[in-house]
Simulated scan of single mutants.
Amino acid sequence: MEMEPEKPVVAANPIRVRGDLDPDLSRWMWLVKWILAIPHYIVLFFLYIAYFVVSVIAFFAILFTGKYPRGLFDFNVGVMRWNWRVGFYSLTVLGTDKYPPFHLRQDPDYPADLEVDYPETLHRGLVLVKWWLLAIPHYLIVGALMSGAVGNAADDGANPWGLVLTWPLISLLLAVALIALLFTARYPKGLYDFVVGINRWAIRVQAYASLMRDEYPPFRLDQGPREP
């Protein structure tokens, strides 16, 4: 009797991003979500100041000890988690009408969440280059997907500066999704999966550049609400 070959074991991604689409999204609530989320923006402004300070402290801790202090690590992951929930609700996905909670903890009852596995050790030398030099290719791609770009325009006299601002891809995708939602009360699934994939890529790069993991982020869009 022939034995079936064992399937290779695939390790779980150490950075896991979840975003479950709300099946009953309001047709019009996206018009005001960004206003309703203003209290979160204010809190996140101060949290990200602390996030930067913690990252600097972690930089020196990793450089000299090879470890990211666990308390600081959990705090920064919590800030990323909070930011992802707010973005999922109001800015970068618009995938739920459920208001985000005001805390850093994991919340299995909220449709958006993320986890980053704590590394027992980190490479002391990589801390010097991974957050700027090694991550540059990802910065260029994620920047093109998530932010507008300025380029040279043809000089026709109408634009004395010869510049043009292009819309980021994610904004165009969200515009299409919102038009579909307004007229059909449905968020197109393929479009939703693609938008979440862009956000997942950006979050993985943020975690890598924030010194949380040594694994280099993959150059791919893992689409869909859950990690593949």
Rank of each mutant, 00 (worst) to 15 (best):
Q106Y: 07
G78Y: 04
Y110V: 02
P111R: 05
W84C: 13
W84G: 09
Y68F: 15
F60G: 07
D117F: 14
P8N: 01
D109R: 13
Q106G: 07
I15E: 05
R16W: 12
Q106R: 13
K98E: 07
R81M: 11
E6G: 02
T96C: 07
Y48A: 01
K98L: 11
L63I: 13
V79F: 14
D117L: 15
A12N: 13
K98H: 10
D113A: 03
R27Y: 11
P23Q: 09
G78F: 06
T65S: 01
Y68P: 08
V17E: 04
P69C: 05
P39Q: 15
V54D: 01
W28A: 02
Y48C: 04
D113P: 02
Y68A: 12
A61F: 01
R105Q: 10
F45N: 06
G66P: 02
L21C: 05
V43C: 08
L104K: 01
V86E: 03
V9L: 11
S26A: 14
P8H: 03
K7W: 14
F73T: 04
M80S: 05
P100T: 10
P100F: 00
L91V: 07
I35H: 13
L36D: 00
P23G: 02
F52P: 05
V56L: 12
V43N: 09
Y68Q: 14
R16C: 02
A50T: 12
F46P: 04
D109H: 13
A11D: 07
T92N: 15
Y41L: 12
H103S: 04
D109S: 10
L114C: 03
K33L: 14
N13Y: 05
V93A: 10
M80A: 03
G71I: 00
I15S: 07
M80K: 01
Y41P: 02
F46W: 12
Y89W: 07
L91C: 06
I49M: 10
D24E: 14
P101Y: 01
Y99T: 00
D22E: 03
Y68K: 11
P69M: 07
V116W: 06
P101H: 05
K98S: 06
F46E: 10
